[in-house]
């Protein structure tokens, strides 16, 4: 479904991705793990078009994503739920959700998705008219995921959805991730919380200083001594 082939991305002169290749098949959850500054966020930003690769190709269902603007990539069904949530704090919860569906023309389905988001996260329904900036961290993450659902993802790019959240909330976020997969959404999940990510994922890639250093079935990686030592706390 998604294929990255030898992708190089720079920030000015900083060479952040040094030939990343990876693929995601339809229906999978693929985890991308790695330490601080490994290039996980950069990989997602390059897929969603906010960064342009200097070299290499990114194809989604046969289309070259590198030729599309970020908003067109969303329309193709590749939806990026960014690191740090980045909800619009001055807009209401409902406005945040409406905005993410703005490009869709299927009003019926948009309303259904809104109901689905409210069913997944009832607290968002309660707070629909509240400024999103007044939500707690966990609620903001729910809104960020809800917003992504409103964009009708076929491939969802999730950047550290569990960052800074209480264990109970992390638990429920990962449950939602599993639910989304069961509903047919393919997911590329970036996490520093490697343990949780490897639990839910089918396959995983380990990124280090801009390169893929390991890849394989999530279960196998979770047993790998090197991965255990580096990312699972021994």
């Amino acid at each position: 479904m998604l294929v990255l082939d030898n992708v190089h991305t720079y920030y000015g002169r900083i060479h952040a991705l040094k030939g990343v290749s990876l693929s995601v098949e339809r229906g999978e959850i693929v985890a991308l793990i790695g330490g601080n500054g490994a290039g996980k966020t950069t990989t997602l930003l390059t897929i969603s078009g906010l960064l342009r690769p200097k070299q290499g190709s990114i194809t989604f269902e046969g289309q070259a994503l590198t030729q599309h603007a970020p908003h067109q990539i969303v329309r193709l069904g590749v939806v990026h739920c960014p690191e740090g949530r980045q909800i619009f704090g001055r807009l209401s919860v409902l406005e945040n959700l409406r905005l993410a569906a703005m490009h869709r023309r299927d009003g019926q389905a948009v309303r259904r998705d809104l109901e689905r988001v409210y069913a997944l996260f009832p607290v968002l329904a309660q707070r629909r008219n509240q400024a999103a900036g007044t939500l707690s961290g966990g609620e903001q993450q729910m809104l960020a995921i809800g917003r992504a659902i409103m964009s009708q993802p076929r491939l969802l790019l999730l950047d550290e959805p569990s960052l800074g959240l209480a264990p109970l909330i992390v638990e429920s976020i990962f449950k939602v991730i599993a639910t989304l997969r069961d509903e047919g959404v393919t997911i590329l999940l970036v996490e520093q919380n490697a343990y949780q990510a490897l639990q839910v994922a089918d396959r995983a890639y380990v990124l280090e200083t801009g390169r893929v250093i390991l890849q394989g079935p999530a279960r196998a990686l979770a047993e790998d001594p090197a991965v255990k030592a580096a990312y699972l706390g021994g």
């Binding site: 969603s48 078009g49 906010l50 970020p70 939806v79 619009f88 703005m102 964009s151």
Partner: peptide, 10 residues
């Protein structure tokens, strides 16, 4: 940037 990720044509 976040608006672009939401599909907004800037």
């Amino acid at each position: 940037r976040a608006a672009q990720l939401m599909g907004v044509d800037v």
